[in-house]
Design a protein around this nucleic acid. Structure first.
Length: 437
RNA sequence: GUGACUGUAGCUCAAUGGUAGAGCACCAGCUUGUGGAGCUGGGCGUUGCGGGUUCAACUCCCGUCAGUCACCCCA
């Protein structure tokens, strides 16, 4: 077949998306398994929501003006004319499922976890993909501060159990619908007095989304930003109490945190508690200058108004958070978790001669039913090649089935270390291995 | 969406305007009945793609796509 330029165009994954092969796959699955295990221990139930949702669901929940909706969402028009979107996050979908399945009538709060890919049409860079994996927790139906603290605590615990070391919690409260507005007014007033000291982007933010002013990293804006009013100072009494309680829970869980008054988060539906769990990395540049770079590994917060935005009826208080799993996997300290079904093979099964090859599946099934994990290369013929592969695989034993053994219904069990061999009857094989492995 | 750097075999990289190479990996054989080694053989690579300059382009120029990193924003 002639090679064509189709190879370059077709045989390549889409920009910002990648295949997970072998250990990359296992390390992702292993993380999800560990995260699910810890979450279930705390009473979370699994849910897998759909990869596609009605586009309108995200427009309403995440926010018409958010970056996610305006420039990062993959939207499609189906052949039937529906407007759908690949999920850019999963909270909206879980909330949709909460109402669709009548979970209001379950004991509250409903605690759900889910994991899988999410999609954002963003420019790829370090720790950023267009298809990436999240592990999510949602606690729906309570406004208690312990729920906020529990979500943070569990996500933190998962990251710790995944082997991560230098992580810390950044937390803030942006208040509720009452006090947030007065804070926003104060912030706008303040910035209007300091228009000269801020960048063009910030002037735009002042009009569209003032809270994001605090996100600006432009050096020119730092002085103005540092002296800006802090949301915590404007919290109403109930919000203040709620925030204080969350911090007290974290204290007693022994989780150190830092109140970051610049943390406002990008999604419209957040209220009161917002948090991120960041990894702190010291990087040394080529010129020897040390700098601290932080990467957000997880984030979340309270979203008491999302339900009403979606249903138009009453509020359902809720809180949640998500881990960016790809970012965990790229950390050096990641524990390289693997799923439980992955077993290290103890035996390399070797066959030679056509008779033996034909009998191979029979032997292998005996071993599988005896829960003995093996590896093999049935496509190979030569004994020395198969032994070399066994050597490479690092297995302690080899089982050899040759012409003679196939006729006599026996196999040879070979110790790969000391090269000793025993001939064992096939019907005694499982028993023999249980005793001697 | 903006900017910088990069793009040669499966992988890591050579070839500074003059015939595209090496190591590793892979496959086969030496060796259908016993291991890490060795030896022999195995690549018609549109040098990411498209155009331009030139007698001649992997090399220079333009465009484009992709990768990496940063901004924006976020996980």
């Amino acid at each position: 077949m002639k090679k064509t330029k189709n190879k370059e165009e077709l045989l390549k994954s889409p920009k910002g998306m990648r295949d997970l092969i072998g250990n990359d796959f296992f390390h992702l699955q292993g993380f999800m398994e560990k995260a699910a295990e810890i979450s279930m221990y705390y009473g979370f139930q699994p849910i897998e929501t759909t990869m596609l949702e009605k586009e309108e669901l995200f427009n309403r929940s995440v926010g018409e003006n958010s970056d996610i909706v305006t420039k990062e969402m993959y939207t499609i028009k189906t052949k039937g004319g529906d407007h759908l979107a690949l999920r850019p996050e999963t909270t909206a979908g879980v909330m949709r499922a909460y109402f669709e399945h009548g979970m209001q009538s379950w004991p509250q709060p409903v605690m759900l976890f889910n994991y899988g890919p999410v999609f954002r049409h963003d420019n790829p860079q370090k720790g950023r993909w267009r298809q990436f994996y999240q592990f999510n927790l949602e606690v729906i139906g309570t406004k208690k501060s312990v729920a906020d603290a529990m979500v943070i605590m569990i996500l933190y615990t998962i990251l710790k159990e995944a082997g991560l070391k230098d992580i810390s919690v950044q937390i803030n409260s942006i208040g509720d619908s009452d006090c947030r507005n007065s804070y926003r007014r104060e912030l706008v007033n303040y910035y209007k007095k300091h228009l000269k000291g801020i960048c063009a982007d910030c002037r735009e933010r002042l009009k569209t989304n003032p809270l994001r002013l605090l996100d600006c990293k432009n050096p020119h804006c730092q002085e103005v930003k540092q002296n800006a009013p802090e949301s915590v100072a404007y919290l109403c009494a109930p919000c203040k109490a709620h925030f204080k309680e969350v911090l007290e829970y974290l204290d007693s869980f022994g989780i150190s945190y830092e109140i970051n008054s610049n943390l406002v988060r990008g999604l419209d539906y957040y209220s009161r508690t917002v948090f991120e769990i960041v990894s702190n990395k010291k990087t040394v540049a080529e010129d020897g200058v040390e700098s601290n770079s932080t990467l957000s590994l997880a984030g979340g917060g309270r979203y008491d108004y999302l339900a009403k935005v979606l249903t138009g009826k009453k509020d359902v208080p809720a809180t949640g958070g998500a881990i960016g799993v790809d970012r965990v996997l790229m950390q050096e300290e990641y524990a390289k978790l693997t799923p439980r079904i992955v077993k290290k093979p103890k035996i390399f099964f070797i066959q030679l001669s056509q008779d033996a090859k034909q009998k191979s599946f029979e032997i292998i099934e005996i071993l599988r039913k005896a829960k003995v994990s093996i590896t093999q290369s049935l496509a190979k013929d030569s004994l020395s090649v198969q032994l070399a592969l066994a050597e490479k695989a690092g297995v302690p034993f080899a089982i050899i089935l040759g012409q003679k053994e196939a006729l006599e219904s026996t196999v040879i069990v070979r110790n790969m270390d000391n090269r000793s061999q025993y001939t064992v009857k096939i019907d005694k094989l499982a028993e023999y291995l249980k005793k001697n492995l």
